[in-house]
Amino acid sequence: MSATLPATHTNHLRMIEALYSGHHGWLYATLRKKLGNAMDAADLAQDTFTRILASKVAVIEQPRAYLSCVAKGILVNWYQRKALERAYLDALALLPAPEVPAPELRLMVLETLHEIDAMLDALPPLVKRCFLLSQIGGLKYEDIAGQLGVSLITVKRYMKQAFVRCLMLVD
Rank of each mutant, 00 (worst) to 15 (best):
I74R: 05
Q147L: 14
L44M: 09
A102K: 07
E99Q: 14
L126V: 09
P98Y: 10
P125K: 11
A65K: 07
P103M: 01
P63A: 03
P96C: 04
I52Q: 03
A118K: 07
A118L: 13
I136C: 05
M108P: 00
P124G: 06
L44Y: 00
I60C: 12
L53K: 00
A45H: 02
G146Y: 02
C130Q: 07
I74A: 04
D143Q: 15
M108A: 15
S134N: 12
A58V: 08
A58N: 01
K82N: 10
P96S: 13
M119Y: 02
S134E: 13
L110Q: 11
R106V: 11
L120K: 05
L139F: 14
A122W: 02
R129C: 06
L152M: 12
G138F: 07
E85S: 12
E104R: 09
V150T: 08
R86N: 09
G149Q: 06
P98N: 09
G149N: 03
Y141S: 13
V70G: 03
R86E: 09
P124T: 05
V150M: 12
G146M: 11
I144S: 05
E104I: 01
M119L: 12
S55T: 00
L89M: 14
A58H: 05
V127Q: 10
A118V: 05
R64W: 08
Q80I: 03
A97D: 14
A58R: 13
F49N: 06
Q135C: 07
I144R: 08
L92N: 05
L84K: 02
Y141G: 10
P96I: 04
R129W: 02
R86T: 09
T48P: 08
P125Y: 08
K82S: 12
A93L: 05
R106K: 10
Y66H: 11
C69A: 13
K128C: 12
R51N: 00
L89D: 07
T48Y: 04
L126P: 09
I153L: 11
L132S: 04
Q135I: 06
V150S: 04
